[in-house]
Computed example of a mutant assay.
Amino acid sequence: MKLQTIGGFAGLICAATYVFGFAFLVTLLAPLGFGTVAIDAHAVVRFIDANPGVLILWNSVIYILNALALAVLVVAVHQRLHANTPGWASVTRAFGLIWATLVIGAGMIANVAVERAAYLAPQDMDRAVTLWETLHAVELGLGGGNEIAGGVWIGCVSLAGLLGRSLGKVTSGLGLLTGAAGLLTLIPIFGDVAGAVFGLGAIIWFIAIGLTLLLSRTNA
Rank of each mutant, 00 (worst) to 15 (best):
P31R: 00
G35P: 10
T36Y: 02
A38N: 14
D40K: 07
A41G: 13
A41S: 07
V44G: 05
V44Y: 14
V44S: 10
V45R: 02
R46Y: 00
D49S: 15
P52Q: 03
P52D: 01
G53W: 01
V54D: 13
V54K: 05
V54E: 08
I56N: 12
W58G: 14
S60C: 13
V61R: 02
V61L: 15
I62L: 10
Y63T: 12
L65R: 01
L65Y: 04
V77S: 09
V77M: 14
H78F: 05
Q79R: 12
L81I: 05
N84A: 13
P86H: 13
S90F: 04
S90C: 11
T92V: 12
A94C: 10
F95G: 11
G96Q: 04
W99Q: 13
V103L: 12
I104S: 14
I104A: 09
M108Q: 07
V112F: 05
A113D: 08
A113F: 03
A113P: 10
V114H: 03
V114L: 08
E115T: 09
R116V: 15
A117S: 02
A118C: 08
L120T: 07
P122A: 00
D124C: 02
D126E: 14
V129I: 09
T130H: 10
T130D: 11
E133V: 12
T134N: 12
H136L: 12
A137M: 06
G141V: 12
G144L: 05
G144Q: 02
E147I: 08
G150I: 11
G150A: 09
G151P: 15
V157Y: 01
S158I: 06
